[in-house]
Design a protein around this nucleic acid. Structure first.
Lengths: 225, 225
DNA sequence: AGTGAAGCCTATCGATCGCTCGGTAGGCAG
DNA sequence: CTGCCTACCGAGCGATCGATAGGCTTCACT
């Protein structure tokens, strides 16, 4: 009452949030199996036994991290698609905002993407379903962009989407928060590579052009060079 | 002393090769820390004690796998560059042959790429140096392709190369040897995405064109889309 | 003042970890 | 034959693992 109780509640974050943040950081740095519950507890500022007041098992940490992270992605994607505009512009916003989220929450995304195998079979299936739902949303946008003529149609949208996430996800391995580029700049760079490619553009249109409907040849691509 | 000893040279030992192959497979599937020496031995058809007749420590397995794998990549890259031709054609052969090697030896590449953190500090530095040497070779080819006008010059070759390995390396996570595409087809698809991008090509040249020398502006890239 | 939950602690459990020990089986040289 | 070497194994070491048992303190509410 009269005494200042605000000073001992002033803990910056709740204990469970500190534990989850520590888990994400350590899982990314050392892997799930390579992180002990004692390290985890110490990183969050408590004894290992005290962990089990907040969680059931060590696996719960990875599971909660993964679900939260994938639901954030689903929210982001849902918001971007709800804005509604032409498919290529939507795809660009998906890519760039995803990269920004991926890198700003790198610990959680890296833990989820790399340590999925450590989950029990049932939970792994559940997490994979969440992830696949996000991927399917992007694939739909890719397909619509192809039908609208903004994206080349000689690549199966399934593989175009796999290539897209290839290009974006591996960034978690080299992104440096103290490096030259911030997440938004990396997203801009990667979108540029994804959409325009590395090919020198002598006369490519800088923005989208009216749908011109290529004959959608499905040959084997740039075989001969 | 020099009688027929060529057949019992230690490099032809089959047990150690089985152990190394088992280690690569298990490290990819379960991670380094998640794989016990007992599992490793069982997978190679031995008791765990017998492992230590062939190796010093568990870490030796990861180290030997990593060095061997990176030296194979260095050999491959050296051969491709030695063929000598225009930089864009060299880059295409680098990309496509790298993807084929990456996927044909997926276990070893995945173990090396994902479990590097499990190595001791000294060995980790050594392996990273080997890897960076391979990356630097690709970056040089990218830079020469830019100077020759075959690759757009508005992206720092450092980041173009990071994007390149982004696009290729993540494939280890979804490649299925029993799936639709074989490694060569995936390499062809990824090269197509890397070089041409996803943009619908109304009039882009299907093969290389004579160097046209862009002014090589080095600004911040594709800001306005 | 009394009650009960929340939050964290010390101490320790059984299981499993990487690794070592002392041995055995068989090939080969003298 | 003896002696040595490679390859392997059963048993078990100390350390560490994830998780548990039970106690102490704080605090809200009666």
């Amino acid at each position: 009452m009269t005494r200042s109780k605000s000073d001992d509640i002033e803990t910056s974050a709740s204990t469970i949030d500190r534990v989850l943040a520590s888990a994400a950081k350590l899982f990314r740095e050392k892997g799930y199996a390579g992180t002990s519950t004692r390290e985890l507890a110490a990183s969050a500022g408590l004894q290992s036994a005290s962990l089990y007041h907040h969680i059931g098992t060590k696996e719960d940490l990875l599971y909660r991290l993964s679900v939260t992270t994938l639901e954030e992605v689903a929210d982001l994607f849902g918001r971007v698609v709800a804005e509604g505009s032409d498919p290529v512009a939507t795809l660009e916003r998906l890519v760039r905002s995803y990269v920004e989220l991926l890198l700003e929450e790198r610990d959680r995304h890296a833990a989820m993407l790399n340590e999925l195998r450590a989950l029990s079979a049932q939970r792994r299936v559940e997490v994979v379903e969440l992830r696949d739902r996000n991927v399917a949303l992007v694939r739909d946008v890719v397909g619509r962009a192809q039908q609208a003529g903004g994206v080349r149609s000689d690549i199966d949208p399934k593989y175009a989407t796999l290539a897209l996430f290839n290009l974006l996800n591996w960034t978690i391995f080299w992104y440096d928060p103290d490096g030259d580029l911030d997440p938004a700049s990396i997203g801009e760079m990667l979108w540029g590579v994804l959409f325009r490619g590395l090919m020198s553009s002598q006369d490519a249109p800088p923005a989208q052009r009216k749908p011109r409907r290529e004959p959608a040849r499905r040959s084997k691509g740039t075989a001969g060079t």
